[in-house]
Design a binder for these strands. Structure first.
Length: 225
DNA sequence: CTTCGGATCGCCT
DNA sequence: GGCGATCCGAAGG
């Protein structure tokens, strides 16, 4: 019942939602601006909050590293949809990853949410990620984050800008981030012509940021000798 | 600490 | 048929 204290966004409730206009901008602007904001995930198990510490921008058909590079397909359809929605995809036969769609509708884009700090719901996250050694690793990496937050295919296309308490996923404004703390570099696991685009953004010295890994071509064991 | 390989399947060519 | 916006455990320094 704290009434007049919702200017301090760190404690319990009262944080404002990011408006859709926040997402309706070029993905390279939105991606670094998302750092420090708070993802809210609501399931039947309760509510979780996660402070975003690492993201990557994927710029649709102009970006060789993007799922939308070769145009629209059934899988990447939500990347072309209206901004402020989720794009969730299944990868490596076992993991999900979460993106937030930006930019004008029809222009594909997505910000991959790569890592964050679990502010609320640590217990639920630990149940879903029993192998995590420390709480700091619960959402350290895109598939870990999706697992910790119970993100799956059902969230693909979900609107993250509704103001309903029942929304499965939404984004609240977090505490302001020092612009000097925002770092950028190449995207993890992206090869080819886009390998060196500095479109990964993270908060300097934050212990929940995942380690950078360069693109690894698979060993071609089928090469005959 | 680092490197390496296995898991596992939907999507695209 | 090949490989991916990854993670984890094992083995070696």
């Amino acid at each position: 019942m704290i009434a007049g204290r919702d200017r301090k966004p760190s404690t319990t409730s009262g944080d404002p939602h990011l408006p859709r206009a926040f997402f309706d901008r070029p993905v390279l602007d939105v991606a670094p601006d998302l750092l420090g904001h708070v993802l809210v995930r609501t399931t039947t198990d309760g509510r979780m909050r996660l402070r975003i510490t690492e993201v990557e921008a994927y710029a649709g058909e102009a970006d060789p590293g993007s799922h939308a590079y070769r145009g629209r397909t059934e899988r990447n359809g939500s990347m072309f949809g209206p901004p402020g929605h989720a794009y969730v995809y299944f990868i490596y036969g076992m993991w999900y990853s979460l993106n937030l769609v930006c930019g004008p509708e029809g222009q594909a884009s997505g910000v991959l949410i790569r890592a964050g700090e679990v502010l609320e719901g640590v217990e639920q996250a630990r149940e879903r990620r029993p192998k995590a050694r420390k709480d700091l690793e619960l959402a350290k990496g895109p598939a870990r984050l999706a697992t910790a937050l119970a993100v799956d295919r059902e969230l693909n296309g979900a609107d993250v800008c509704t103001h309903e308490d029942t929304a499965p996923l939404s984004v609240l404004a977090g505490e302001k981030v020092d612009p000097g703390a925002v770092k950028s570099g190449p995207r993890t696991g992206v090869g080819g012509d886009a390998a060196h685009y500095p479109w990964r953004f993270w908060l300097a010295d934050d212990p929940t940021v995942s380690p950078y890994r360069a693109h690894k071509p698979r060993n071609r064991s089928s090469a005959r000798a």
